[in-house]
Amino acid sequence: MKRFFPLLRHPKTDKIYSGSESPVIREIAALLKKRSMSPLARSISVRMIDCGSSNDVEVEEVMTTSPQVDCDRFGIHYVASPRHADVLLASGPVTINMKLALERTYDAMPDPKVVVAAGDGAVSGGLFGKSKVVYKSGKVSDVVPVAVNVPGNPPTPYELVLGILKAGEALSKKR
C-alpha cells in the first residue's frame, strides 16, 4: 500500500495512557484499567438521539468512530435501534416536537438502561431555556432520567467517550 500511495499515512490511533497531558485521556485510561480488571466486562451498545442540538454533537459523535479515536477499541459501538442499546446518548435542548420521540425511544430500550446527556443544551437547556418551543427548560432530565452529564459546546470526541464509559459503570451497578 505504502509503495503505491506513498503519502498515505498509516492510521495514527491516539495512545491512551495514564501519563497523558490531557485530563480527559487520563480519566479514560483509569476507567479502562478498571474495566479490564473486572471479569466479564461487557461492551457498550449506544443508541444516539438528537433532540434539538445544532448538528455539532452528531459531528463529534461521528468523529469518535474516526481511525484516530476509534471508539470500538474501548468496547463502544453504535447500534441502529433502541431495542439493541444499553446506553441512550441524547443531545438537546429537547424541543416540543422531539419530546414524544425521546420518550418512546427510551421506552423501547430493554432494561437495564442508562441515559447520557451530551452537550450544553441537553445538560441545562443552554441558550434555549426560555424558548417557547422547547419542552420545559430543555433539559433531557425533564423527560427521562439522566445518569451522566457531558457538558460542552459541543463536547470533544474523547469527552463523549468518557461519558459513555461512565455510563457503562452506572450500567454495571444496575445489573
Partner: peptide
C-alpha cells in the same frame, strides 16, 4: 421541524 427551537424568536 423536529429541531425547531426558536432561534429567530430568541
Amino acid at each position: 421541524s423536529y429541531m425547531h427551537k426558536g432561534i429567530e424568536e430568541l
